[in-house]
Design a protein around this nucleic acid. Structure first.
Lengths: 339, 339
DNA sequence: CTGAAAGCGCTTACAG
DNA sequence: CTGAAAGCGCTTACAG
């Protein structure tokens, strides 16, 4: 194997100088830099990342923690984040967690053995961050939830305005004449910290403004962010409340399960029951009928997250919390009703 | 940070003995082992993997190369493989490649800088393996294609019998009375090396046995393994051949796009056009109508692949090439026709 | 069974 | 601007 020693020998410089060239240190003569770079190219030399990281004490890959591997929305962000990281010459590792797992504890575990340069969380429960994130000292980014209120200096966050989006969904349904609206998704027990909470808060505002009653026991059903979760929660919801004419699934993955459940119960979307999803995943453009949904800009989310963490890892930039744009896509899954 | 030195000091043994305990070497006294393990537990010590790998010259993570990030089938295998690797205490890195990228070249690149212990390929073009795989010397596994004919001693492969499955699909459609059958998916230019080839060969056998003509120009359309690919290829196929009454999409992701295209062209599945997919991904259980498809056993594929690579990395087991069971799931997307 | 020591491939003060 | 040298945290012959 070619090592830095070989490059030193072949170029006629010391390994110290070769190392400086590799790491773009400024105090190297133009002459030395050119010669060394030429030899590196000739030998197709790649520095051993283990040795490098051992010295630098900072370990390997930026680690992406995906919370909820059944959630198709995360798959598209994951793919983009990973691709951007690799294009920037960074290694990327991925850990898939159950939707209800403690992602911060998982990160702490990984920190102990592998010392990642940073973490990117796809999804996160603020309560877990509040409790344990102080144990993590590398730059981290939370995607699809806001960590602004936590005030950790090494935690950035990027998300769409879930409250505004939730508001928009219910307001849209109300304006279409729906008054019996159901909501599925998320977990009641973790209210206040999960993404679902903000979406729900926006919904409640829209209900109030439109003079529509919202009784959680009758109109809400928790659900995992999976197709099967959406399927089951929809069945439960419609059984306990057959008057419902519209359902807001707070994730497209859930919505796809919901549409199938509605069909299997002998109803039709949108003629009997309208449905709105959330995320704007690719699959939502191919369902029959096409799903009306809130599209989150995956590309922007991934780009902001990656750029932010790279600047913080390499240049100590401060963390930031930003909102990303979203918009509603009108599909074919909502109908206007007249009472 | 706690290092092996601290454990040595605290336990009263040398770092050599501590190292032996960590790595389960047999030549350590029971007494020493217990004492050292106790201190390791107390300190919650995790060996620095960089130092370990630097010494062992073998580098980091087992690397999973996913070929075709738009293919939903791979997402489910990836999740399982990753989870099993982590449960076994192995690190896992993932690289997403375009469906047409050269995965073997990508692996060679990664080998140079990171020396993974092994590679798991999700999808692969045999031609690329034939040309370049001799440059890779770590244990590797190819999933969803067979590498048996290549005879590389460090390459295992696990797949369902694509030829048999392709045969079964066409035979099934023929027995249902279909004679004008279209096929979408794969790439004509890479015939002989892509997974599509074996599926196609099985199809041709079934056509012949059932006395049905198959003219590639009129009945076949290439497609990327994506929903949009399925959408576009279906439009092309039906435009050039309106007599088609059934379509075999050689991937469920493609089939989902196909179903939407059929609908948008004003036809109905299965009343006007029957459709059969391939893979048995979770989404195929939620489409309307439910997809008839060939279910590959993701769990078995992942399990075989992971167990095989671990045994080869740690115990030099020989490589192997095995077939995994598959079965057809009858959904609602195929209808019997009478001519 | 155990310890002392060399060395894996790098980076980085330090001295010049 | 450059080189010699220490040291990152481990593993593993070697000697006993």
């Amino acid at each position: 194997m070619t090592t830095i020693k070989d490059i030193a020998r072949l170029s006629g410089y010391s390994i110290g100088t070769v190392s400086r060239v590799i790491n773009n240190h400024p105090d190297v003569s133009e002459e030395a830099r050119e010669k060394v770079e030429q030899v590196i190219r000739e030998q197709n030399f790649k520095p051993n990342s283990n040795a490098k990281q051992l010295k630098q004490q900072s370990n390997s890959a930026i680690t992406i923690i995906v919370k909820g591997y059944e959630n198709m929305f995360f798959e598209s962000i994951l793919e983009r984040v990973q691709a951007m990281l690799i294009d920037s010459g960074e290694e990327a590792a991925v850990a898939f967690l159950d939707e209800y797992a403690n992602e911060v504890q998982a990160a702490i575990q990984l920190s102990a053995s592998r010392k990642p340069k940073g973490f990117i969380f796809l999804g996160g429960n603020l309560e877990f961050f509040r409790q344990d994130f102080h144990n993590i000292d590398v730059p981290s980014v939370l995607l699809t939830n806001t960590a602004e209120e936590l005030g950790f200096p090494n935690l950035s966050s990027f998300t769409i305005d879930d409250m505004e989006a939730g508001y928009k969904v219910i307001d849209y349904l109300a304006k279409k004449g729906h008054t019996e609206i159901g909501i599925i998704g998320g977990s009641a027990s973790q209210i206040g910290s999960q993404i679902g909470f903000r979406r729900m808060a926006g919904c409640e505002k829209a209900f109030a403004e439109n003079g529509i009653e919202f009784v959680e026991e009758k109109q809400y059903e928790p659900s995992r962010f999976s197709m099967s979760g959406g399927y089951e929660s929809t069945q439960k919801l419609l059984k306990k409340n057959p008057k419902i004419t519209a359902i807001f699934a707070i994730g497209d993955t859930i919505a796809i399960g919901a549409m199938r459940a509605i069909k299997d119960m002998g109803y039709s979307v949108p003629d009997d029951i309208s449905i709105i999803g959330y995320d704007g995943i690719e699959s939502s453009r191919y369902t029959i009928p096409r799903l009306t949904t809130i599209r989150q800009d995956t590309e922007a989310l991934a780009k902001k997250g990656v750029e932010d963490i790279l600047l913080r890892i390499n240049y100590n930039h401060p963390s930031s919390n930003e909102l990303i744009a979203f918009h509603m896509i009108e599909g074919e899954s909502v109908i206007r009703i007249n009472k």
